[in-house]
């Protein structure tokens, strides 16, 4: 969207300007993200903020903070490989995987030749294997395993967390299927609002009965007062049936509650718990 074709409605422009300047309440945000380009003024606000900050003086960050960030940077640059997000819909049964990072052609040419030789060698020594089963097949196989937990998603009102369902709950149905032994699991959703990944993403949190509680006393004294395990950030590309693999960032001993929250793109380390749905394990 260019300046020349900005919305002509001043109320819309004011809403988008407010969003860029100070953010919006949830209902207005839902309205804004339904527009063509909710971030139409974000870059302009950022440029103004840069100019004003530069005028007042750019300060170096404290050395201790820098050290902590360098440690975070090392962790980030050598991540534990996570399963690629895979989405399966009932209608298409199509698997969608994110495109791999692009590698400059010159840098990749030599590797391509080497990879071709390697593939040839592998094929000579090993006959082609059966393709990896799709996500629905893996979900079905997991459901058959003894000891696997299967529990339904609850809306906020059904869980007693609110008087009404979340705005993104479009008559949500579905289950969590979770293997406590292997920490493998899948979330099945139907009726969870599709999201624009550039505006918001969903994030799963796992409350573990084997982990300590009380770190977040604002959430009471029970298990909800613990720092839950990050179960992974995910997108819902369609309001139809979607299956999402669970990717816990830490080992989970005894999962007691699963909660899905709405978060900024990329997810968060500590959530403010804008919960859309919960699933409880008996």
């Amino acid at each position: 969207m260019s300046v020349r074709n900005l919305p002509t409605d001043d109320q819309i422009l004011d809403l988008l300007a407010l969003r860029a300047a100070e953010g919006l309440d949830r209902d207005d945000e839902v309205h804004a993200v339904s527009l063509d380009d909710p971030g139409v003024f974000d870059a302009a606000a950022a440029v103004l903020a840069i100019g004003m900050t530069a005028r007042d003086g750019i300060e170096p960050m404290p050395p201790m903070l820098r050290q902590r960030l360098e440690a975070l940077a090392e962790d980030f640059a050598t991540p534990v490989p996570a399963p690629a997000p895979i989405v399966s819909t009932a209608s298409s049964r199509t698997l969608h995987r994110p495109e791999p990072a692009r590698v400059p052609w010159m840098a990749s040419a030599g590797w391509l030749a080497a990879a071709a030789c390697l593939i040839l060698a592998v094929v000579v020594w090993n006959p082609p294997r059966t393709p990896e089963p799709g996500i629905d097949a893996r979900l079905a196989a997991l459901e058959m395993k003894p000891g696997v937990v299967k529990t339904d998603w609850l809306s906020l009102d059904a869980a007693g967390l609110s008087e009404s369902p979340h705005a993104y709950d479009k008559n949500l149905k579905g289950q969590i299927v979770w293997d406590p032994q292997t920490n493998e699991g899948y979330m099945v959703f139907e009726g969870l609002a599709s999201n624009d990944p550039s505006a918001l993403q969903y994030q799963l949190w796992i409350f573990d009965a084997d982990r300590p509680t009380g770190q977040l006393p604002q959430y009471g004294e029970g298990i909800l007062s613990q720092r839950p395990v990050d179960g992974g950030v995910f997108d819902i590309p369609t309001d139809g049936r979607v299956v999402v693999p669970i990717t816990p960032k830490l080992s989970v001993g005894k999962a007691a509650v699963f909660a899905v929250t709405v978060e900024p793109p990329g997810g968060v380390v500590v959530s403010d718990r804008d919960i859309v749905a919960v699933a409880m394990v008996n």
Partner: peptide, 30 residues
């Protein structure tokens, strides 16, 4: 680093809050 820190300092209540914010921002940028 300096720009993000300076932006955070302008709006965060305390230095500790700004430090948490800067960490969250860099993770988000990466």
């Amino acid at each position: 680093g300096a720009l993000i820190w300076s932006l955070a300092r302008r709006t965060c209540r305390s230095g500790a809050d700004a430090e948490d914010a800067v960490q969250e921002i860099f993770v988000s940028i990466w």
